[in-house]
């Protein structure tokens, strides 16, 4: 199955619109609206037997873009499904009921980007440090690390050069 055939099959099976961007012979990107996320996951994962590799969350100007990377191992290509959760309503459907392997990555995206996944059985924090609050998301572009460090007293108070100078004096 080449990418062209895959797109044909996808078009015949799905009842929703999508936008195709072919990057190379091995990579294809599909853009869909967030309402159709579950439908396309059923088509690609359940019916076409792709493997779910991972999802990546990116903060862009329009909102939070989440990319689901599905790999077709027998056919040697990757299909990436991209969808957008707008700023004012950062919510997406959870795919855990269809793909159990998506449990952790949805938790991670929730943790670092603040995208809510509706219907996730156990949506709690995964990797973020405990001193970061529930509402502080380091991967958002408006997150200011310097200011955050100063607020929490995490900025280094002693400059790193000082101890070196002391040792030099001692050795003299």
């Amino acid at each position: 199955m080449k990418i062209q055939e895959f797109i044909e099959i996808l078009k015949s099976k799905s009842k929703f619109p999508f936008e195709v961007q072919q990057h190379s012979e091995k990579r294809v990107y599909i853009r869909i609206a967030r309402e159709n996320l579950k439908d396309i996951a059923i088509v690609i994962f359940k019916e076409m037997n792709a493997k779910f590799s991972i999802a990546s969350g990116v903060h862009i100007r329009e909102g939070f873009e989440v990319l689901y990377h599905f790999t077709f191992d027998k056919d040697k290509f990757i299909c990436t499904v991209r969808t957008l959760a707008p700023h004012d309503d950062p919510k997406l459907d959870s795919l855990v009921s269809i793909i159990p392997g998506a449990t952790w990555i949805e938790r991670e995206i929730y943790d670092i980007l603040g995208v809510q996944f509706l219907g996730h059985p156990n949506l709690k924090r995964l990797v973020k440090a405990e001193f970061l609050g529930e509402k502080e998301f380091p991967f958002r572009k408006d997150f200011n690390i310097k200011k955050f460090k100063e607020d929490h007293g995490l900025a280094p108070k002693i400059s790193f050069i000082q101890p070196v100078e002391q040792t030099v004096k001692k050795s003299k």
Partner: peptide, 16 residues
């Protein structure tokens, strides 16, 4: 790079 996403194999193996 604007965004780098790394998925190490253990990340997907451990939930199993």
């Amino acid at each position: 790079p604007e965004r780098l996403k790394v998925r190490a194999p253990s990340f997907i193996n451990i939930p199993s």
